[in-house]
Amino acid sequence: MTVLHKPRLLSDNGSSYIAGDLADWLEDKGMDHVRGAPFHPQTQGKIERWHQTMKNRVLLEHYYLPGDLERQIEAFVNYYNHRRYHESLNNVTPADVYFGRAETILREREKIKKLTIQKRRLQHQKAAA
């Protein structure tokens, strides 16, 4: 699969996010670091909403071992990126956009929609006749 974008970390300008160690780690991982504009809460609102969604899902169960919690978080991240359709992405998954599949999926959906409308019109015309 072809990756269209490098992974990136979205953060605020807190001291832990401007540390040199983090910059070195991100560089080693081939990631970009995007910082939200100061006093621009909408940018941070996106990641805060993501954390809230994850927290609400993860807190549905009790975890008795650290590995159990880690597996649940991993399952959530996988679901969020690969299975959950996002309205802001035209109802495709982030993975579809990331790997360049979104346009193909949207074109295929449009074809299916047109065929469905044609079939319904024919059925309606037959029933009316």
Rank of each mutant, 00 (worst) to 15 (best):
Y64A: 08
T104D: 09
H82N: 06
Y64C: 05
K114V: 06
Y63I: 05
T116Q: 11
A75T: 14
F99M: 02
D68L: 11
T116M: 03
S16W: 02
Y80E: 07
W25G: 05
H86M: 09
V58I: 15
M31T: 06
Y98K: 01
L4C: 01
L9W: 01
G45H: 04
H82C: 07
N90K: 12
R121T: 03
I73Y: 12
K29Q: 15
S11D: 09
K111L: 07
E103M: 09
G45C: 01
K111H: 04
N91D: 14
R84M: 14
N56E: 15
R57G: 08
D21W: 05
D96A: 10
F39T: 05
E103K: 03
P66N: 14
D96C: 08
A127D: 14
L122K: 10
D28R: 09
S88D: 13
H62K: 12
S11H: 12
H62Y: 12
T43A: 13
D96P: 00
P94M: 08
K55F: 09
E108Q: 10
G30Y: 10
I47Y: 02
L22D: 01
R109T: 02
H82K: 13
D96T: 01
L26T: 08
K111N: 08
P94C: 05
R101A: 06
M31S: 07
L115D: 02
Q72D: 13
R57K: 11
H62S: 00
D32Q: 05
R101C: 05
Y79L: 06
V3S: 11
Y63G: 02
P41H: 12
D28N: 14
D68Y: 02
S11A: 02
K119D: 00
G20H: 10
A19M: 08
V97R: 09
N91M: 11
P41G: 06
Y98E: 02
I18L: 04
Y64H: 15
L59E: 11
Y85H: 13
P38L: 05
K6Q: 10
K46R: 08
V3Q: 07
L60I: 09
Q123M: 09
H33Q: 05
R71F: 11
R121P: 00
K29T: 12
R57A: 15
L59V: 14
G20N: 13
L69M: 10
G14W: 04
G36R: 12
Y80W: 10
G14C: 03
N78K: 13
R49Y: 07
L9M: 05
R83Q: 15
A37S: 13
A127M: 04
L26F: 02
K119S: 04
Q123V: 02
R120E: 09
N56P: 03
Q44L: 14
E70S: 04
N56D: 15
P66D: 13
W25R: 15
D21H: 03
K29E: 14
I73W: 10
K46M: 15
V92C: 04
E87A: 13
K111D: 04
Q125W: 03
A75K: 10
G14Y: 06
F99N: 01
P66K: 09
Y64K: 06
R121L: 13
A19G: 09
H33E: 01
